[in-house]
Design a protein around this nucleic acid. Structure first.
Lengths: 239, 239
DNA sequence: AAAATGTACCGTACAAAGTACGGAGACCGG
DNA sequence: CCGGTCTCCGTACTTTGTACGGTACATTTT
């Protein structure tokens, strides 16, 4: 028999490659190891193909990043809700979906922030679904658009602000040594010069909680309050 | 006389360089031509020094980016306000300062989004000033921290979302061919398949305005509403 | 004043990453 | 059996960050 080293350089000829598949793998790689570790070569080796293979599907690495953003936006999953959803419920569901998106794909915040990203495809789809959901809950169109923009910006900004990116983390799906990090932060704020930063020292317990989920929820609640107040003020008493 | 080409490669020996100066120049370059055009070499030629000069001031390009973020945050300028500022006024002033920061330094949104950026220096200073300003207007500490987080996230997310980055623009300090861009967007939304994106087509006029300043103001107003409502509910009737 | 030492700067070179170019194998219709 | 096409990719060039060591001026020492 011929030896294994003579295996042809064209292993299965699977036609197993496709643009969405490449984008999905790239997204997984970036989410796992960090966007800066996503190189054309690392992606190639992860897929078991040659370096230049992608240029048959994309014109540049930038286009791969666009496809990744598209892929992620396309995976936006709104939780099912009853048909008689209140505006607050609709907003909170959308917000949760955005938040989950950013948590599951830590790299897309960076991708969206670093590019013009006019990937129209899935982005428009998500837009349509979200705005439709908000409007069905009773929010009028213009306000639904504002709310969409608010939630998108809030989720993106929140994810961008402190990207904790625990690459090389260990065990659970939740933050691993959260308490250790809190301890460090606590120590940091406590050691600030009291005369120079009196407020920061005074409020260190709150500041430590700043990057937590409660901060995200606070922003969402602000939107809910305003939307509800607007609806009440305009006297949409349907019922 | 000796010819000009014999000018030594050490022109003035000015001792004109310093870390903040490098950071400022880098920030200016990035804001002007785009962060991706900011290379060590381009920065060197802009400063008229050699490529490796920076490594006497910073350990890596990353550190230069950190210094740029620090520089920008340090330039945060809160408009002066009377001592009897209302919470709404304080919030709006802070929001305006953040917004101006992102407009004047389009690159820092990208910098903050792409890095862990634990630049403690100026960042903490801005934090202290902002939180102090909010508290002086009557907002209690914990709510002031929440508001700071909200505004930072909102400004950062808003700047990140659609970075119009008109590099290579021409004349005025305002957007040059704003109307042309609007026309394109209008055409885009109008040409969407009506059956697939009915909401987007229906709301195209509002969607075109999505990246405008009114969207930013909407988010700020949401925060103001919630803060005022909270203060009223807790009955802080000081007067 | 001349030599030694330190400081600030930078020329060269190498590694990593994006990608242009052209080629190589597999499959297909004749 | 023979080109044609499709898919994949090996090689090499360019750009970027940066390690290493050198060079020139200033200050100190003798």
């Amino acid at each position: 028999m011929n030896d294994a080293s003579a295996v042809p350089p064209t292993p299965p000829r699977d036609r197993t490659l496709s643009a969405p598949l490449i984008a999905r793998q790239a997204l997984a790689l970036a989410d796992e190891r960090g966007l800066e570790k996503l190189t054309v070569r690392s992606l190639a080796s992860a897929l078991g193909v040659g370096t230049m293979t992608f240029y048959g599907y994309f014109r540049s690495k930038e286009e791969i990043l666009d496809a990744m953003a598209d892929e992620a936006l396309g995976s936006l999953a709104l939780p099912e809700g009853e048909p008689d959803e209140t505006p607050r419920q609709a907003i909170e569901n959308v917000a949760q979906a955005f938040r989950r998106l950013m948590v599951e794909h830590p790299s897309i915040a960076q991708i969206l922030s670093s590019r013009i990203t006019d990937s129209p495809q899935a982005r428009r789809g998500a837009m349509e679904v979200v705005i439709d959901r908000l409007m069905r809950s009773g929010i009028p169109g213009p306000l639904a658009v504002r709310s969409y923009g608010f939630l998108m910006v809030h989720a993106l900004g929140f994810a961008s602000y402190q990207t904790p990116r625990p690459w090389a983390r260990g065990t659970s799906d939740e933050s691993p040594d959260e308490s250790e990090l809190r301890r460090q932060q606590h120590h940091f704020y406590a050691s600030l010069p009291l005369t120079e930063f009196p407020r920061l020292v005074e409020l260190r317990d709150e500041l430590i909680e700043l990057p937590g989920e409660a901060q995200f929820a606070f922003g969402v609640a602000c939107l809910c309050d305003t939307v509800e107040a607007t609806l009440a003020r305009e006297g949409h008493l349907d019922g």
